[in-house]
Structures are given as structure tokens and as C-alpha cells.
Design a protein around this nucleic acid. Sequence first.
DNA 1: ATTATTATTGTACCTTTGTCGCATTAATAT
DNA 2: ATATTAATGCGACAAAGGTACAATAATAAT
Lengths: 136, 136
Amino acid sequence: MDIRRRNTKTKQMIMTVLSDSSSALCYEDFEKQLSGTIDKATVYRILQGFCDDGKVHKISGNNGKTYYALCHHCNSGNHNDNHIHFQCIRCQTILCIDKQFSIPVLPPGYRMTDMHCLISGHCPDCFNEIADYEKK
Amino acid sequence: MDIRRRNTKTKQMIMTVLSDSSSALCYEDFEKQLSGTIDKATVYRILQGFCDDGKVHKISGNNGKTYYALCHHCNSGNHNDNHIHFQCIRCQTILCIDKQFSIPVLPPGYRMTDMHCLISGHCPDCFNEIADYEKK
DNA sequence: ATTATTATTGTACCTTTGTCGCATTAATAT
DNA sequence: ATATTAATGCGACAAAGGTACAATAATAAT
């Protein structure tokens, strides 16, 4: 039933990339940071494994890509990431905003297992750059 | 600056499919309902056009697909779809839940333009089917 | 009604995301 | 040191989604 994981260099490298990042990452980001050392299929498999173990959670961005970020209060079989994600519509960066908020009531008969709240907009950096551009 | 749209049969067909559906639709759904009459590229272009006009909004599902649903209180340049979306993890159906809810406060400097809240779980139908299956 | 304009469509092609099977490699247990 | 079996790399592949371009068809102008 339980698959016993092995601690490999590849996993360590991916985990390091995740830990060093302040924002959520998509495959492209891993590819860049690892400069193509690790195969695409392996990257996806490892990230999926981390998700199954409750170490990482997935976020579907508004650009159709899936982003991955470290979990803080989760374990295998029980994800607990009911926080907000913010994605900048200019630089695409996704940030986890660790702020609990009330989950709306569902219509009768609907059962919730998970929740993702993605707010789109401009991050401070991009907002400033746009403001600078407008001035000219 | 403003592109004047033309009222074509293709657009009418896609709009009819959207109007007749109680849930949000992905490309696959359009393909099925139109039985491949309209080319893929055209479907995507028309849907994108509807989004630009504020007639339709996009929802990124947890399965990596983009879903489209009619807007109710939007216009071009100003989307106003701060409602919740529910996606069943079994049948993948996405439902718009027209219930306003308070948008959490963002950290200083962040500007919100849009919001998508996707709750995953079981819809009543799928929940019942699972319950029936468990009984056996 | 006819013609001119240009938005729209279909076609072909391409990129990206993400998955799968399989032989090989390497982490752990014996 | 050896056996076991996760994990990896490779190749191939399907699906999502977008682009360039020539052909078509709505609309505007005549």
C-alpha cells in the first residue's frame, strides 16, 4: 500500500528550487533553474509525488499552466491549503498569500474537498513599471 | 481602435451552446455539441472574442483545461465575475455559483483586477453514485 | 443592387503541457 | 556484497491552444 520513497539527488534539487523560491513555480521555471539537467517527465513525476505526500500543492494559473508551491500545514492525504493565491497578469508570478478566509457556503448536496482562490492583478513591481511607462 | 464585430452563424452557434448550458464548457464540450462543424482555431478565437467583449468569462479548471461561461453583469473592459466556481472532481463539471462573497484584503501594493475562486469536490449526482457504489 | 472593404473562417503547422511504457540506473534492505 | 525495486532518462504521444495566410462572407459605400 505505502510506497517507500527514496531520497535521490534529483528530488533534493527540485526541493531546493522550491525552498529557495518565494513564489509558486511552473515547469518552465524548474527547467530554467535546473538548466535542463533533469528530464521533463521526471520533474513532473517528482512534483506529483510531492503533492501526494502533502509537501507541495498545485495551483492552476490563469494562463493554463500549473504552478507548484511548498505546503506549510499539510500532510499526505490531507491537504490544507485554503489560502489565497495571487497571480500578476504582467509577469505571471504566483504568490501564496497566507491569510485564512471564510469559505462560502455551497448549495445543498455539494461536498467540498479542496479550494483554490486565485486573484489576478498587478504585483507592486509591475504596477510601478506600468506607472513609469504611462508618465512618458 | 475599436474592431467592429460581425454577426456570423458560427458565433451564433457557439453562443447558443453557451446559453443552453447550465454549466461552464471547455473546448471538448463545444466540439461534441457542434459535432466538429467548426474548426478548433475558430472556436478558440470566438470564445476569446466573447471574453474581450465581456460576454463570457474564462475559468481555469483543476484539470488544466479552460472553461467558458456566460457573464451576467459584465461589459467589455470590465469583468465583474467575483463569484465562486465549483468543479466536481469526478465528472469535471464546472458550475458558476452566483453568490457574492467578500474578497480578502491584499498585501500593500498589490492591485486586483480579477478573481477566480474554484472549489473542488463532489456534485450531488456523483456523491450519490459513489455512495451507492460503497453500499455493494 | 453592386461593389469595395475588412472581419472572419478554415487549413496547416507549431509550441507547450503533461503523460506513458520501457529499459537502465541507483537507493535501500538483506 | 548482493538482491530488490524505486527512480530516472528516453522516446513517443495526445491534448490544449495559438499563429500565419489565403479564401470567404458580413457589412459599408456606391
